[in-house]
């Protein structure tokens, strides 16, 4: 949990975001820091729980990140406060079953894989998450890491948007929070269409990018945080732009051009 990010957004352990859709758009590799922050914020809060829909990383990855943030995911998992959905495995198995191939049948099952309807599994994934959410309480954040992988798997962008829409309806219906990350590469029209569509329905948008002037030892990247005005009136959004430096267990945020290295001189 990064206290400086909490200050920026007005969140705290006692004032968790609720009925909020957070969308992280990264063009560098540091976007996941927001997801890690949300994970630790909800797990450290009294009675908060987290559901991670993992597409980019395995449970071990999140477990090691959590250890650095003084959390024991295995224990929290046993307590029912942490749920990990291995979405890749789920989609894979679902696709094989739909193709009439038993996944437990042997090692050659993927060799016989014919992707007739690769996007049909997304509905199954939604139902799976929906079932899991029934056991979680009100203070829950559902984290999808990362959405762009679904599009990279060959799913049409529109199907990914529908999946997120259904998930949003389910999560918001229980006054919970939905957070997702989307990795964007410049010039990729499909990804651009995906993040634009998701941005329309998000309440808080994080745009994480590299430092424009190049690599730096003291500044690891820039983050633009857009908190949308609920009335959607033009020019009323709360936009903040900060730079950050990642240290071993924490992330420091500071105003543009005011890193410790600059002030020190």
């Amino acid at each position: 949990m990064f206290a400086e990010l909490n200050n920026l957004l007005g969140w705290s352990q006692t004032q968790l975001p609720s009925e909020t859709m957070c969308f992280v758009r990264e063009t560098s590799d540091e976007g996941s820091l927001v997801l890690h922050h949300l994970m630790s914020l909800f797990l450290k809060a009294n009675g908060g729980s987290v559901c991670i829909v993992g597409l980019a990383q395995s449970f071990t990855h999140y477990s090691s990140v959590a250890t650095r943030l003084s959390l024991n995911l295995n224990k929290l998992k046993q307590d029912g406060r942490f749920v990990f959905v291995d979405a890749m495995k789920h989609i894979g198995e679902d696709t094989l079953v739909k193709c009439g191939i038993e996944s437990a049948g042997g090692n050659d099952c993927w060799l016989n894989y014919h992707p007739d309807q690769p996007h049909s599994s997304i509905k199954g994934l939604f139902w799976h998450i929906k079932e899991l959410l029934k056991n979680l309480n009100e203070k829950t954040v559902v984290i999808i890491d990362d959405v762009s992988i679904l599009a990279a798997l060959g799913l049409p962008v529109q199907d990914v948007v529908y999946f997120i829409e259904y998930l949003k309806k389910e999560v918001m219906g229980k006054r919970n929070t939905l957070a997702m990350l989307c990795h964007c590469t410049e010039g990729d029209n499909d990804m651009e269409l995906l993040w634009r569509q998701l941005s329309y329905h998000s309440d808080v948008i994080f745009e994480v990018s590299c430092l424009q002037t190049g690599l730096s030892r003291d500044v690891h990247g820039e983050m633009k945080v857009i908190k949308k005005d609920s009335s959607l009136l033009p020019g009323k959004d709360n936009v903040k732009k900060v730079q950050f430096k990642i240290s071993d267990r924490n992330v420091h945020f500071f105003a543009l051009g005011l890193s410790a290295a600059v002030i020190g001189h």
Partner: peptide, 8 residues
């Protein structure tokens, strides 16, 4: 568009 909402 994303920057200028037509909802109002």
């Amino acid at each position: 568009n994303l920057d200028s909402s037509g909802v109002p």
